[in-house]
Simulated scan of single mutants.
Amino acid sequence: MKTLALILSLFISGIIANAQDTKGITLKVTIENVLSDEGQILAALHTQDTFMRGQGIQNFKLEAKTGSISFVFLNVKPGTYAISSLHDENENQRMDFHDSGMPKEKYAMSGNEMAMGPPNFKDVKFEVNDEDFELKLRF
């Protein structure tokens, strides 16, 4: 009986230890320079596979607020990621463009690289390790 109790306690301890190891970090994102209260702020955490292809692996939709707005991505595992965000002023859930191809709505990417043309993952990626951290983006 003592052997069975010992085996069960070791088994349960192993499950608890593994569950704690799978928890990721908390990534706080602050978007600065929101210029109006109109519409919504859409944001997504992407891997290379999801970047510029629709929904991210975690997504946010928040009411816009002039100034800055913050949100958190929870349990982010170590790896390489990018963040995209958009001030969707007309709430149509997508980026709107002028006839010239330039965006009508404000946007920001991790890395804050704003090169001409669509962003690429290589320019906006960042590494997640084992510590919580914060990113600041600017529209």
Rank of each mutant, 00 (worst) to 15 (best):
I57W: 09
K65N: 11
Q40T: 15
D37P: 00
E91N: 04
E89W: 01
T3C: 11
L135C: 10
E113R: 09
S100V: 12
M1A: 14
I12Y: 00
K61I: 15
N18T: 11
D132E: 09
G101A: 06
N75E: 11
Y81C: 13
E63D: 14
E105T: 11
S9N: 12
H46A: 03
F71C: 07
L86M: 14
T22R: 08
G14K: 09
G39Y: 00
V72F: 03
G56I: 06
D123R: 07
R138K: 13
M109V: 03
F139V: 13
D96A: 01
T26A: 10
D96S: 05
A5V: 07
F139I: 13
M116V: 04
K122D: 10
G111M: 11
S68T: 12
N18K: 01
A82H: 05
F139E: 05
M95E: 03
N120H: 09
F97H: 04
S36C: 06
I31D: 09
N75Q: 00
D99S: 04
L35Y: 04
S36M: 08
L74P: 01
P103D: 08
Q40I: 07
L62S: 07
D49H: 13
I15T: 10
E127N: 01
F97N: 04
E134K: 00
I57H: 00
I12A: 08
M52T: 03
G24E: 05
E89K: 06
P118M: 06
A17R: 00
M114T: 08
G56C: 06
S9T: 12
A43D: 00
E63N: 15
F51P: 04
G24A: 05
F97K: 05
S84A: 15
L86P: 03
P103E: 08
F51H: 05
F133N: 10
S13Y: 08
P78T: 12
N33A: 08
G39L: 02
K122M: 03
I7Q: 06
L137P: 08
N18Q: 10
L4C: 07
G117I: 10
L6V: 11
G54E: 15
I16V: 15
P118W: 05
N120W: 01
G111Y: 00
I69K: 10
M102W: 04
I15Q: 12
D99W: 09
N75M: 02
L86R: 15
N92I: 10
D88W: 07
K122L: 06
P103C: 13
D130C: 01
N112F: 07
S100P: 12
I25K: 13
E127Y: 01
P119T: 02
S110W: 05
